[in-house]
Amino acid sequence: MKRYLRNPVAVLGAALVLAVLGMGLAAPLLFPGDPLGLAGRPLQWPGANPRFPLGTDPSGRDIMAQIFHGARISLLIGFVATLVATAIGIAIGALAGFYGGWVDTVLMRLTEAFQTLPNFLLLLVLVAVFGSHINTVTVAIGLVSWPPVARLTRAEFLTLRTREFVQAARVQGLSDLHLMLREVLPNALPPVIVYASVVMAVAILLESALAFLQLSDPNVPSWGNLIGLGRNVLRVEWYVSAIPGVAILLTILGVSLVGQGLNDALNPRIGK
């Protein structure tokens, strides 16, 4: 923790994430109305009307309100999808790496299948089949994001299971469950936690891309959605697309920096 706070870049990342989180939490207080409701004349440039500091979109909705409410959606999707992906990834990677043999072969074929399939294409198919409700989209993003987590966890388990302290616990007659959960997992977790930040960044990007293609839930204020709407007026009112893009960029930047900071704090090899 101390090591993390001494790293100014990591602190900047945390500040960015906290700012986005703050926006999300403050959204219902600052913009109690429906962010997707009609607010004023469409396509007002930012600054033109003091009521809408960031202007209005082609449907006359307040962009600022959408940005604040969108923060909530992005973080929520990112967080839940990451949870789903890491849970699946750790479970599959741990079993494959710990047991090896045919368990490993079967699980790795499955992982390979998921990785051979372009993840965005699979996401499109999942949304096409199960619909684009926000919950479905979130779970679908989690479902397409777990393979790298599984590979990473498996690699960690593969090296750790041959380490002497795991063998020692085995010789002591402790159960597989104990070996996996108490001996191997705590040592395998740090790189996986660091990687979770990458999963979260990718999850937020996937959702915004889906929304940009108008395939995500149209009933929630999503940054990607807004960029997609702005596309039709891109030549003149490019600000409609530009503003939510900056919001996504800063959020991803914050998440990545937090991941990097965690990496430096948890694996202090480079510092030495």
Binding site: A201, F212, L234, W238, S241, G245, I248, I252
Partner: peptide
């Protein structure tokens, strides 16, 4: 590198169109 990584590709594409094409 960090900024490139954090940029959504579709947004970068749109902005590039605005700048270089429009």
């Amino acid at each position: 590198g960090l900024i490139f990584y954090a940029t959504p590709s579709f947004w970068f594409g749109l902005m590039a169109i605005v700048l270089f094409s429009v």
